[in-house]
Design a binder for these strands. Structure first.
Lengths: 245, 245
DNA sequence: TAGTGGTCTAGACCACTTT
DNA sequence: AAGTGGTCTAGACCACTAG
């Protein structure tokens, strides 16, 4: 008795939901449009709200939805292509890339950073905070670690702030840049980055780590966290493709 | 009355949990070691299992934990650096990169792919499936879309399979490669990719889309999905840094 | 103040691996 | 068969936004 089992190994409800909602987004909704609220959607599909949320979570991860507390769930625009090509042989902050300097401090870097900077343990370095804005939206927050040895003239006592940050970059540009290498991995936003990026802590981010080489040494390390929901990192000419999941 | 409020805006429990467990991983556990099970951990921290899982989920996203159904939760090794540098001016499948061809079929590509391939709607293309293995583990699954116009001699009627896949690649290599561009974004694994990568469907992946240019046209498009939990994509010389979160 | 998404609970059952 | 992580439920309350 009972209904025939169409799926011998039925997929989880949330996954099927994701497919159904995803197709609805393509056919019945326009970018920016507000979806029914979660309680309403859950009832409509006959599932618990937690299950519905599991589906929405993945759709948001794929950049198809945008959820804002107190506001609602909207259909997200296609991801923004952000150029992070390493072929531009230049120091950070040279020319007007989309970066703006926030401030600079002197502090002990994370252990992993200290290791590749080949600084002494507990040795303090310049830490420049920058923000990258694209299309009016903040897309990345960066911490740039510069050993004091890389900017020897900068023993000055500028007050921390944007001016100080620009001084560090200016001094860094005096060095000859021999090369750089880069890596990309998945991470989750630390509380302070999340704030800059207008996201909740723990939000998925693409962590771009760049090592700047000068005179056979690592002259600086940049750790930039890009919003994974809204950004597509491009290398070389931009790929005009929307491809996720 | 009551206890003094140390945190005016206390952070969510799961986030605090994440920090506590993360520190414990650094100090008290070795790579590969099995953690207590979720019910035990939840009880130990005095939270519901769902809350505990929210913390574990983020730690897994950051590559610090590995969870396997029926087995347990283990401390993950550092992420593997996988070279995806675009500077190697070569076609896919040339030389022995870590890729192995699985099979090849002829089918209609996704709309987004067809658009940049500039093929007719509903036009069928070769679809080569490949798998990238690194350190004995599968790290990426790829779909390579090749319009029939790019491999005109291949009207043959080989049986689908690894041999057919190699034929497509061989014919592709006859073209001159003018350039390529690449993009990286976050996605979630489709069911078939997940199976190849030994992950559950929906697992976070880094989607690397590469466009191969020849004669002013897009000769092929590769969509490779890398396991985001275990991989760090490197460009240029590898960056010897573990930086996530 | 009303409505939204975010957090949290205490339970249940399922799918999978290992013994 | 026992033990693990994965899915799902039905509720509750909180934090935030907007009228």
């Amino acid at each position: 008795m009972g209904t025939t089992q169409l799926e011998p190994v039925p997929e989880p409800k949330y996954q099927h939901l994701k497919t159904v909602i995803g197709e609805a987004l393509d056919s019945e909704f326009a970018v920016g449009e507000i979806l029914p609220n979660e309680r309403e959607l859950a009832a409509r599909f006959g599932v618990a709200r937690a299950t519905l949320r599991q589906a929405l979570e993945q759709l948001e991860l794929e950049g198809r939805l945008q959820r804002r507390r107190g506001v609602g769930t909207t259909v997200a625009p296609p991801r923004v292509g952000v150029d992070v090509s390493t072929t531009q042989h230049s120091w950070p902050g040279a020319g007007d890339d989309g970066w703006q300097s926030l401030d600079s401090s002197v502090d002990v870097p994370p252990a992993a950073v200290a290791r590749t900077l080949e600084t002494e343990a507990e040795e303090r370095v310049h830490i420049v905070r920058r923000l990258r804005v694209s299309h009016g939206q903040p897309v990345a927050a960066e911490l740039l670690y510069v050993p004091e040895g890389s900017v020897p003239r900068l023993t000055a006592i500028d007050a921390p702030g944007p001016a100080r940050a620009r001084s560090v970059l200016r001094e860094l540009h005096r060095l000859s840049l021999d090369g750089q290498d880069r890596s990309v991995e998945l991470g989750s936003a630390r509380a302070d980055d999340a704030k800059e990026l207008d996201r909740l802590p723990g939000a998925p981010v693409l962590v771009v780590t760049t090592r700047y080489l000068s005179g056979g040494r690592t002259a600086a390390i940049s750790v930039a966290t890009y919003r994974a929901d809204t950004c597509r990192l491009t290398f070389g000419d931009s790929v005009d493709l929307v491809m996720a999941s």
